[in-house]
Each structure stands twice: as C-alpha cells, then as structure tokens.
Amino acid sequence: MPYTRVHAEVHEYDVFARKTRVEPLHQVGSVVAPDDDLAMAYARATYDEERWVEMMIVPKAAIISLWAPGGDS
C-alpha cells in the first residue's frame, strides 16, 4: 500500500532492536521515509525508549511473508 508524505515517494521500513546481548532482535515498530538515510534517522529518534545494544531497519518490501495470523498470506 503506498503511503504519502511531503516527499515525492516514501517507503515503509520495519525497525528491529534488542536491549541485551542475550536476547534476539524483535520488531519495535516501523517508520516511513523517502530513503535509507532518513529512515535511519527517524528509527533512532522515534524508538528511543531503551538503550538498545542493536538496532536495524529493513525495507518492508524486502520481507517475504510465509504465513501470518488471519490467513492473509
């Protein structure tokens, strides 16, 4: 689904993070931005509720879903 902002074109990115070295990454939210640079800046500013030891973003379009609750996939 295309999202709109002031920018000509934007993409959705899922944000993953973890608090400690022992735990795995989990999804903490998502951001919408025109490019990777701004998506990184936004992810880090928006999801600052913890001192994460790791954070990464993934373009939503790169995620291949096998199945999901609700039987959409």
Binding site: M1, Y3, T4, R5, V6, G29, S30, V32, T46, Y47
Partner: peptide, 18 residues
C-alpha cells in the same frame, strides 16, 4: 512518537497519515 504509532496503524488500515 505516540501519535505516530496510532496514525501509522491507521495508515496500515488504509487511512492517510498525511
């Protein structure tokens, strides 16, 4: 950021945050 969470879910449900 809390507003963003609610609006983004609305966006995923087909509304426009903008």
């Amino acid at each position: 950021a809390h507003a963003h969470i609610a609006y983004h879910i609305l966006e995923e449900l087909g509304e426009s945050q903008e």
